[in-house]
Design a protein around this nucleic acid. Structure first.
Lengths: 289, 289
DNA sequence: ATGCCTTACGCCGCCCGTAACCATG
DNA sequence: CATGGTTACGGGCGGCGTAAGGCAT
């Protein structure tokens, strides 16, 4: 079970094609075939069905292990490298869409006024990707948002030793279309809304599976899916009655009115893998005060 | 960063010697030297100081990543194998010393009366080792004990996806020498004993660092260390006044009297990595039934 | 008939062992 | 001077590519 074989296996599983995996990895199709065969011989079980290419049960199980393993391998390299290398003069920050605005704009000013000059990169990513990219060093810093109980930390995927520190915490609000029966209520318990129609907007609002986890209910069925990070588009859809959406209150400030949700907050955390001196540390200090 | 190189590096770090690592792995000293050199070139930093062999900072950091990585690699293999292979007709159970007695003896009877005949192996191990060995398939089942709040799960090292299920829960008691000022008290808060003299008996009693974690105090300094799993020996030392010890109440039944500790329990959990039919499932059912 | 994965086969390069070398206690 | 890690070098073998083979759509 060499890591090269695992890497190839993961690529094949992702692409559903030996050929595509080969081109991605810079191998020939033949080599990929041999890699998979080697793994299958080693584990004494077929991992993929061919034509069409699909995972067997064993393959699916292996994939569950292989992806985090490869991520951790990259994280290990990045961690050691960070420890040794001089702090980079560049700065790449990854953030989920709703984690922006938590003072990032202001904090970046502190970095940009620094000498020698750095021009930071801000990259908007899916929440799930951020921790992984901070761990493997693709990002210097990450800003993730999520819903949690007031002082609880966010639940983060386990991708190795990362430090997380709170940046902001804001109330959450449910966005209701005008004329909705619950309009004007002072507060709404999330569980009461489990059976309502929701917009599934995992990037632009709170993901529905997180609402299920936070409320302990298994409702929150999506009536429409919104793929994108633009909050204004989502607000338009919600106001047009396509479904409810849960947003941090500041995000709909001045645009629409929402009904606050008690006992839960929108939380933004800063993720990093050990700060040394350099632009990253500067930005982190500016963000966390 | 091939896994072979990491394995060699870990062996060298553990042994503090290239030669010893080589013999363990069945390599020549030269190969080991080349492995380490390859890693160091790859990461562009020295990992070990030679003569005497000791970890550099970067090496120590790498080791923190490498050991869990290799463990998870073994766990992945074991997991896939478990899924595919017919359930073994053998059964190896690992248990920490104080996790024995939680009905294991009785439950084993159910297994031994089964046809075809299996003769199970019970192996007493350190707590930390058990989860790792269940994950990598060395053990079919693990029984770990620890101290926790009444219904909380035990804190387990993260070695991949394992299932844990409670087996028993028992009160905890502090073992006091006769004539101790607190003798005869109805109940003792752990924090009040942080400054007492304790026996550090990580295998035969609750480890002191766990007491610190559970009580939030940083006391519990050891006055004597007891290496071994024999509880009677520990009890003798405690009664002779060498220090206090925290034990599950059943463990000192009939031998000595202890003062109960409220708000904490001794908990035993069964660890497994997905049960199929076979002796392991039988034993698990008998234990948790 | 045509993709697409598999198998056969040869070559290149990597990796390990032998052996000489060197540093340190 | 001895113990133990490093370096030099050669040989074996594993892994990759080329190309031919098979199989399902």
């Amino acid at each position: 079970m060499d890591t090269h074989l695992l890497r190839t296996f993961v690529a094949v599983a992702r692409h559903g094609s030996f050929t595509a995996a080969a081109t991605e990895l810079g191998y020939t199709q033949s080599a990929v075939s041999q890699h998979v065969a080697a793994l299958e011989t080693d584990l004494r079980t077929p991992l993929l069905r061919r034509r069409p290419v699909a995972l067997t049960d064993a393959g699916a199980r292996l994939l569950e292990h292989a992806e985090p393993l490869l991520l951790r391998l990259a994280a290990a390299r990045a961690d050691v490298t960070r420890l040794v290398a001089a702090p980079a003069e560049h700065l790449v920050v990854g953030a989920s869409a709703l984690a922006l605005g938590g003072g990032l704009a202001g904090a970046l000013a502190a970095v940009r006024s620094r000498r020698p000059l750095v021009s930071p990169t801000v990259r908007v990513l899916e929440r799930a990707e951020i921790a992984a990219r901070v761990a493997d060093g693709t990002l210097d810093l990450g800003l993730v948002d999520g819903v949690a109980a007031p002082t609880d930390p966010l639940p983060l995927p386990d991708v190795g030793p990362l430090s997380a520190v709170a940046v902001t915490q804001a109330p959450l609000a449910v966005l209701l279309p005008p004329g909705h029966p619950l309009e004007g209520r002072r507060g709404l318990r999330l569980a009461d809304l489990a059976d309502a129609r929701w917009i599934d907007a995992p990037e632009a609002a709170m993901p529905l599976d997180r609402l299920r986890a936070a409320s302990g209910s298994d409702g929150f069925r999506p009536s429409l899916r919104y793929e994108g990070t633009d909050v204004r588009g989502l607000i338009a859809l919600a106001l047009a009655g396509h479904g409810l959406a849960l947003l941090p209150e500041p995000a709909l400030d001045g645009v629409a009115a929402g009904v606050p949700v008690p006992r839960l907050v929108h939380r933004v955390e800063l993720l990093h893998g050990g700060l040394t001196d350099g632009p990253a540390a500067l930005l982190a200090a500016a963000l966390t005060g």
